[in-house]
């Protein structure tokens, strides 16, 4: 470098620029492959539509002291909104059910609605061979029924018997709730309603026709109704010993 005039070497200079640009593009492409960045890129493309984000975690709080045994508003609402029917056959689906829980020692009995608990460490997500059972960024555990091969391993793995297998042909599906034979299904926390800014069908029905036992909201927002309720009164998660961190919590369960 010393003693030599810095003669402009046009082609060499251009080649260096080209190399730098190539390396830069390669590096950026590598980054873009990382899902997080590509999600942001998507968001910009969509004109600001962000989709599910990890800044939110949807949760449900159910106060069973308000649940009446005879009330099945949540079950009826879910089944009519999503289009499934349970007529008592062992092969019939049931996305949400009322479980009558009785303490044999004291006789205390409560009617507890049980559905998919949307665990943070969902075993169904872990065991699915194709990744069809997955957890969305905002904590909702879903089945991508396009990829589900119907092996039912997630049903073996779920501690809450949240999932059902569709054993026969279905017709007349609701346009917003596609479901079909040979795949596994379960409570979706009415994800398309949440994405449109509404609450799940069961929560709405409980508020309108039931006793208002269900609270829905963002667990990561300390100002939401559910966070405040959880902070004020003790609540429990079902099978808390399994440390799955479900998004659904209960108060008043025996």
């Amino acid at each position: 470098m010393t003693g030599r005039p810095a003669a402009p070497r046009d082609t060499g200079h251009l080649v260096d620029e080209g190399r730098r640009r190539f390396l830069g593009v390669a590096a950026v492409s590598a980054l873009v492959l990382a899902p997080g960045v590509s999600l942001l890129a998507y968001a910009e493309e969509q004109g600001g539509k962000q989709g599910a984000s990890a800044r939110t975690r949807w949760g449900l709080l159910i106060d069973t002291t308000k649940c009446k045994s005879s009330c099945t508003a949540c079950v009826t609402a879910c089944s009519s909104y999503n289009g499934w029917k349970n007529e008592g056959r062992p092969t019939d689906p049931q996305w949400i059910r009322k479980v009558q829980v009785t303490d044999p020692e004291t006789g205390l009995s409560r009617s507890v609605p049980v559905m998919c608990q949307h665990c943070a460490k969902a075993p169904c997500v872990e065991v699915c061979p194709t990744g069809a059972s997955f957890k969305r960024a905002d904590g909702i555990v879903l089945v991508d029924r396009h990829i589900c091969i119907g092996c039912r391993y997630c049903m073996m793995a779920c501690p809450y018997k949240a999932r059902s297998f569709v054993s026969e042909e279905i017709s007349g599906q609701k346009p917003w709730a596609p479901r079909g034979k040979g795949t596994v299904e379960g409570c979706t926390l009415c994800v398309e309603r949440i994405d449109a800014g509404q609450v799940p069908a069961c929560v709405q029905a409980c508020a309108r026709e039931g006793s208002g036992a269900m609270t829905f909201g963002d667990l990561k927002d300390p100002a939401s109704a559910i966070s405040r309720a959880l902070a004020e009164h003790p609540s429990l998660q079902l099978r808390a010993d399994l440390m799955l961190d479900p998004g659904v919590q209960y108060q008043g369960v025996p």
């Binding site: 349970n86 008592g88 062992p90 049931q94 059910r97 009322k98 479980v99 009558q100 829980v101 009785t102 303490d103 044999p104 507890v112 049980v114 501690p159 809450y160 018997k161 079902l238 099978r239 369960v253 025996p254």
Partner: peptide, 14 residues
């Protein structure tokens, strides 16, 4: 055993 130690019954064969 979703509610350990409790008696349970439901329409989903719990």
């Amino acid at each position: 055993s979703i509610f350990p130690g409790m008696q349970v019954s439901s329409s989903f064969y719990d």
